[in-house]
Simulated scan of single mutants.
Amino acid sequence: MVSFFLTWIVAAVSLVITANIVPGIAVTSFPAAMLAAVVIGFVNAVVRPIITLLTLPLSILSLGLFLFVVNAISLSLASWLAGAFSIGFAINGFWPALFGAIVLSLVSGLIGRFVNVGVEQ
Rank of each mutant, 00 (worst) to 15 (best):
A12H: 07
A19W: 09
F85E: 05
V69K: 07
L104F: 15
A84W: 14
L67R: 12
V70L: 07
I111Y: 11
A19Q: 11
L56E: 02
V107P: 08
W8K: 06
P96R: 04
I87N: 05
M1Q: 06
I25S: 11
I111F: 13
A19E: 06
L77M: 12
S108Q: 13
S76F: 01
V107D: 11
T18Y: 08
L65F: 14
F114R: 13
L58F: 15
I9W: 08
L6M: 10
V16G: 10
P96C: 09
G64I: 04
L53G: 09
I111L: 15
L56Q: 07
L81V: 06
S86E: 12
S3F: 06
A97K: 09
I91V: 15
F85S: 12
L81P: 00
P49V: 01
S74T: 09
L75K: 05
G109C: 05
W80Y: 12
F85L: 13
L56R: 10
P49A: 02
V16D: 09
I51D: 05
F85K: 10
I73N: 06
N44I: 00
G100K: 08
V22N: 03
P96A: 04
I21H: 06
Q121R: 14
A37K: 03
I60R: 12
L65D: 09
V43T: 03
A84F: 13
S3A: 10
A90Q: 14
T28G: 11
P57A: 10
P31S: 11
T28D: 14
L106F: 14
S59N: 15
V47C: 07
V103D: 10
F99N: 06
V103N: 08
L81T: 00
I111Q: 07
F5R: 05
A32M: 03
T55G: 06
A11S: 14
A101T: 04
S59V: 04
S86D: 14
S105M: 08
N20A: 15
I9L: 15
V43C: 01
I60H: 11
S79F: 02
I9Y: 06
G100N: 02
L63I: 10
P57E: 05
V115N: 04
N92I: 05
V117L: 15
